[in-house]
Amino acid sequence: MSLDLAFATKVFAALFAIMNPIANLPVFLSLTEGASVAVQRRVALIAAAGTAIGCTLSILAGRPILDAFGLSVDDFRLAGGLLVLLIALSMVQGSASHAHAATPSETARDLDPADVAIYPLTVPLLVGPGTIATLIIFGETARHAGKAVELAAGVSAFLVLLTGALLAAPFIGSHLSQTATAITRRLMGMILAAVAVEMMATSLRVLFPGLTR
Score class of each variant (00 low, 15 high):
Met1Ser: 09
Met1Leu: 02
Leu3Arg: 03
Thr9Ala: 15
Thr9Pro: 08
Lys10Ala: 13
Val11Phe: 07
Phe12Asp: 11
Ala14Asp: 00
Leu15Asp: 01
Ala17Phe: 01
Ile18Arg: 01
Pro21Phe: 09
Ala23Gly: 14
Val27Ser: 09
Phe28Ser: 08
Glu33Lys: 11
Ala38Gln: 09
Arg41Glu: 02
Ala44Gln: 08
Leu45Cys: 03
Leu45Ile: 12
Ile46Leu: 12
Ile46Asn: 06
Ile46Tyr: 04
Ala49Gly: 08
Ala52Pro: 05
Cys55Trp: 00
Cys55Glu: 09
Cys55Pro: 04
Thr56His: 07
Ser58Ala: 15
Phe69Glu: 12
Ser72Arg: 07
Ser72Met: 09
Leu78Ile: 15
Gly80Leu: 06
Gly80Ile: 08
Leu85Val: 03
Val92Gln: 10
Gln93His: 10
Ser95Val: 10
Ser95Ile: 06
Ser95Thr: 08
Ser97Gln: 03
Ala102Tyr: 05
Thr103Lys: 08
Thr103Gln: 06
Pro104Lys: 11
Pro104Asp: 11
Ser105Val: 12
Thr107Gln: 09
Asp110Arg: 12
Leu111Asp: 08
Asp112Met: 12
Asp112Lys: 15
Ala114Ser: 12
Asp115Gln: 11
Tyr119Gly: 05
Thr122Ser: 04
Thr122Met: 11
Pro124Glu: 05
Leu125Val: 13
Leu125Ser: 09
Leu126Tyr: 01
Thr134Asn: 03
Leu135Ala: 03
Phe138Gln: 12
Glu140Leu: 12
Thr141Gly: 09
His144Asp: 13
His144Met: 13
Ala145Trp: 13
Gly146Phe: 11
Glu150Cys: 05
Ala153Val: 14
Gly154Arg: 04
Ser156Gly: 14
Ala157Met: 14
Ala157Tyr: 11
Ala157Thr: 14
Leu159Thr: 08
Thr163Met: 13
Thr163Gln: 01
Leu167Lys: 00
Leu167His: 00
Leu167Phe: 00
Ala168Thr: 10
Phe171Arg: 13
Ile172His: 03
His175Gln: 11
Ser177Glu: 08
Thr184Val: 15
Thr184Lys: 00
Arg185Ser: 07
Arg186Ser: 08
Ala196Gln: 00
Glu198Thr: 14
Met199Pro: 00
Met199Cys: 10
Arg205Trp: 01
Val206Gly: 01
Leu207Tyr: 02
Pro209Tyr: 04
Gly210Pro: 07
Thr212Lys: 06
Arg213Asn: 14
Arg213Ile: 10
